[in-house]
Design a protein around this nucleic acid. Structure first.
Lengths: 223, 223
DNA sequence: AAAAACATCACTGAATTCAGTGATACGTTT
DNA sequence: AAACGTATCACTGAATTCAGTGATGTTTTT
């Protein structure tokens, strides 16, 4: 076949990339033309004029820059997206899904979905449609129809992306057990400022103490 | 080939199972004979006398029962494991690695390792050897040779199992953001006693603050 | 252009944690 | 029997966090 769909995969788990590559290899209308292990690599790859892809499948949790940051970066560049983007995540929080759609994603796959879904998703998205894996689609419909049950508020609905860059930065230091004074030194700030950020984090994430902050960070792998 | 290595895969991400299955399908000396999406399924599957596998590849983070719990269950019930077990995890903490090895695992793969490693791991482990993916092996050697830093000496080797029941109990409450006074009420103890447990936890786990305790607990899934 | 969000800094006072020490009692293990 | 680990409780003082408020300037969004 001549016009194969060119796919780029981004995930920090190489084993998953290899796995998806193996899954796609039996399909004769698509091929993997590149992969990235973190968000920075994704942006770098698409910057290169010689590299092109028709579909980008991207995890949200990645080091360096996460999937949200990549979406924002692409959106900010003012230009059009390099290609349709499918988010592949283990999270299925409705707010997160809404967020990435707002940021321009064309599809959303839960990691617990089957390999078939990914093939289908690539074809549909490459054709200009949107695609959501079954469980995700269910969530969206539920939420739309007001049937939202438990999943509307994961940790009270606060997402990583609801935190500012500075707050995330401070949070990382908190998780390294630095106290406010030490963090202030690291970031060249006043300890008072760090304390303010810390308090804002407590409010946003609705936790009682820095322990809650650390656990949130751990659960969302932003540390 | 007659004697294919029979593999069972356990991971809560179906897409990863499908991926690994695709990777293994091109190897003619192994085959996947089953898979599980959580720890309970693993135990269930191996309970059935009709099901047999030569190697179990298992994630640590799974709902219902996690990988650690499965290892413990196998160790507890029978004397012999149903088969060699390879842990597949995104965590590469040295303490966690040591813990699963203590619990009888035969191999450890980081999820960021390549697909080739998994094939190699299966062959080696099926032959009765141990196998660790490159980055993991590095960590083990580093730790063994003490090159890392002093973190492997003083009261090191501190694992979940090194904590007393009471300490674990207190730790759980700490992770729920209770303060010492509240924990004392819950456990009908003096706040002073709780403080002592807290301080002993800090020493044993060699962390600076309760944040470190919470992160340890999160990483070791004891919360 | 106005409004909202972000980042910065300051002050106070109460609550909590952390470090260091020491003590009693009970059960294993050696 | 002695040593060890565990569980319990107490006291002090310094360090740190947390809550509440307020302020200024910049950037982004609407």
């Amino acid at each position: 076949m001549e016009n194969k769909i060119k796919v780029h995969i981004a995930d920090d788990h190489k084993i998953l990339i290899d796995g998806i590559e193996a899954v796609l290899s039996v399909e004769d209308d698509m091929e993997i033309v590149g992969h990235s292990l973190n968000g920075a690599e994704v942006i770098q790859w698409f910057k290169s004029k010689t590299n092109k892809a028709d579909v980008l499948i991207m995890d949200i949790n990645m080091p360096e820059k996460d999937g949200i940051a990549v979406l924002k970066a692409f959106k900010k560049g003012r230009k059009k997206f390099p290609c349709p983007i499918i988010i592949l995540s283990s999270y299925d929080y409705i707010k997160l899904i809404r967020e990435v759609l707002k940021l321009g994603a064309s599809g959303y796959l839960a990691k617990k979905c089957a390999g078939d879904n990914i093939v289908e998703a690539i074809r549909r998205v490459a054709a200009g449609d949107q695609y959501f894996s079954p469980t995700i689609n269910e969530k969206i419909v539920q939420s739309f129809s007001g049937l939202k049950n438990a999943s509307e508020k994961p940790l009270e609905g606060m997402l990583i992306s609801a935190l500012t860059d500075r707050e995330k930065q401070v949070l990382k230091f908190i998780c390294q057990e630095y106290n406010s004074k030490e963090i202030a030194e690291q970031l060249c700030l006043s300890p008072n400022t760090v304390e303010t950020h810390r308090k804002n984090l407590l409010k946003k994430l609705q936790v009682k103490s820095s322990i809650g902050l650390a656990l949130f960070a751990a659960q969302h792998k932003i540390i």
